[in-house]
């Protein structure tokens, strides 16, 4: 897939879409834009939206330009550029063509920002949502009990600290014997 200017950008860089509107078309209210982006799904976990994951940090109108502030989940997440494209595309399709994307690293993304609805959708999809909050203890110490997203059993074991993507670990249920992904708490 061709990825235009989105690949090379810095922590403070701007990704601009220069289609300044010819007329002063009405700006959709921000609540509407939030709703719009809530339909853009994460490419790796296509049941939760980029809003539910906490990747979209802020939306602002600056004169006629929509300013979108995004934060990456992991430094090396390969989906970052793809997500930026999807967001631009969704906005363009809704007639919002004059957009600037900002990437903001601080404060660093945490799984605490995944919304309740996002957590439920993850579970329904077969991915155990992060348990507890991203305190230092949960990063360094023992993981809390991770319930199986298939049968709900708390008899599970970790197979691997790392899973199919940077954000997941691999677990197995010792009751229903199904392997499953766990969304790591960071």
């Amino acid at each position: 897939m061709r990825q235009p200017q989105l690949m090379n950008h810095t922590a403070n860089s701007l990704i601009a879409s220069d289609r300044r509107p010819a007329s002063t078309a009405a700006q959709p209210p921000l609540a509407h834009v939030w709703q719009l982006l809530d339909e853009v799904l994460d490419p790796e976990v296509p049941v939760v939206s980029v809003v539910e994951l906490g990747i979209v940090r802020d939306l602002q109108w600056h004169e006629q330009q929509l300013q979108v502030t995004l934060t990456p989940t992991y430094s090396g997440c390969p989906a970052t550029a793809f997500i930026e494209q999807e967001i631009l595309q969704a906005l363009h399709q809704a007639g919002i063509a004059y957009v600037q994307l900002h990437q903001q690293l601080a404060p660093a993304w945490t799984t605490d920002w995944i919304s309740e609805s996002g957590r439920n959708k993850l579970r329904d999809y077969g991915i155990a949502p992060p348990v507890g909050s991203a305190s230092k203890r949960s990063l360094l110490g023992e993981e809390p009990v991770i319930a199986c997203p298939q049968c709900g059993s708390e008899h599970t074991e970790r197979v691997s600290e790392f899973g199919s993507t940077a954000c997941k670990a691999l677990y197995r249920c010792t009751d229903c014997l199904e392997p499953f992904d766990y969304f790591k708490c960071i």
């Binding site: 090396g76 691997s160 790392f162």
Partner: peptide, 27 residues
């Protein structure tokens, strides 16, 4: 297989971090 995923993931994190540092250096 689990070790392969772990090493690949650690490498991916490091590549992402390298990009952040090197972009700053290049600027």
């Amino acid at each position: 297989l689990e070790e392969e995923m772990a090493l690949g993931n650690v490498a991916l994190d490091l590549i992402g971090q390298a990009r952040s540092w090197l972009e700053y250096a290049a600027e």
